[in-house]
Simulated scan of single mutants.
Amino acid sequence: MVSPDRQLIAGVDEAGRGPLAGAVVAAAVILPAHYELPGLNDSKKLSEARRERLFELIQAQAVSFAIVAVAATEIDRINILQASLQAMKEAVTALATQPDFVYVDGNRCPRWDYRSEALVQGDSRLDCIAAASILAKVSRDRAMVDMELQYPGYGFARHKGYPTSAHMSALQSLGPCPEHRRSFAPVARSLAAQSQEAQ
């Protein structure tokens, strides 16, 4: 991967589009011209321990960074795509130092006035996006571990809200918790089943 040869370049990425519960989280990062982030890569390609280490290093070395979460209730209101774009837009806007150019992971940019470009698999192509992917992923994973304490029994600390067999089984037996995304089909089916049982 390379860092683009421009001044004040931000990378932005999100984590949590696929889970059935919890927020979608986006992060934006501006890296300095020189940095030491050994093993920096797409967060999905790194071990949890490596992500945790880089999470601290990125925050210590970044020119600026911001992390934003859009809650499950808002995801249900505007849909997951729009919530993801909203989170990315808010993350870039929240940067203490505003960028000259923004690279967005994916195939579209939010509606904004920034000069920007969307890059498919950008988290494997540009360091600034990889750094953003790590901040978003670690922040969301930590929130899901906390959610396990608030809503025990679903296994959020293990599967992070993704539709694993264990999660689907818990959803069937316990029903949705307040952090489940009602607009997602498995959760909607669970709610419908509960409603039928109550009749």
Rank of each mutant, 00 (worst) to 15 (best):
V63R: 13
E52V: 01
A157Q: 14
E179T: 05
R189A: 04
E197C: 07
Q61F: 08
S165Y: 01
G16L: 09
Y103C: 08
L46E: 06
V187D: 00
V187I: 10
V25T: 15
N41L: 04
R181P: 12
A87N: 04
L149A: 15
H180E: 05
Q150G: 01
I129F: 14
A23T: 11
P32N: 06
T73D: 15
C109A: 13
E14A: 05
Y103Q: 10
F65N: 02
A192E: 15
A198L: 15
R51N: 05
L46G: 12
C177N: 14
Q196R: 12
V145K: 03
V2K: 14
E36Y: 09
S84W: 11
E52T: 05
P110F: 10
F55W: 13
T164L: 06
R111E: 15
W112Q: 08
Y35S: 03
E56S: 10
S47Y: 08
A170Y: 11
A15V: 14
V12M: 08
L126H: 05
V187Q: 11
L40E: 03
V120N: 09
I9C: 15
T164R: 04
P178E: 11
E52S: 13
Q194Y: 07
V187S: 08
V70W: 08
E117V: 08
S43H: 02
Y114W: 14
Q194D: 07
A23Y: 10
S84A: 12
S47L: 07
E48L: 12
H159R: 05
A91T: 03
G11T: 04
R140M: 03
F156C: 10
Y114H: 14
L149Y: 03
P176T: 07
R111I: 05
D141R: 09
P32V: 08
F55M: 02
E14L: 13
E74L: 02
G155M: 12
V102N: 06
I78W: 01
D42L: 12
D42A: 01
A136M: 02
I134T: 10
P163C: 01
Q82T: 04
D123E: 14
D146N: 01
A83L: 03
Q82F: 02
R53T: 13
D5M: 06
R182H: 07
I30W: 15
G39E: 12
A185C: 02
A66G: 04
L191S: 00
K45N: 13
E90F: 05
E48C: 04
A193Y: 00
Q196M: 13
L95W: 13
A157L: 02
G161L: 09
L85K: 09
A96M: 03
C109E: 10
H167C: 09
D100W: 12
L46V: 04
Y35Q: 01
A136N: 05
R108M: 14
R189V: 09
V120F: 12
D100H: 14
K160A: 07
P176L: 09
A188M: 13
E36D: 14
R181H: 08
I58C: 03
E52G: 14
R125V: 09
A66F: 10
D100K: 02
Q7W: 10
L171S: 06
A23I: 11
I78R: 12
G122T: 05
A143I: 00
E36F: 12
C177K: 06
L20C: 06
R115I: 00
C109G: 05
P178A: 11
N41E: 12
T93Y: 06
R53V: 07
P176I: 06
E117G: 05
S195T: 11
S139M: 06
A23S: 15
P38K: 14
L171E: 01
A71I: 02
K89R: 15
F65M: 02
R142P: 03
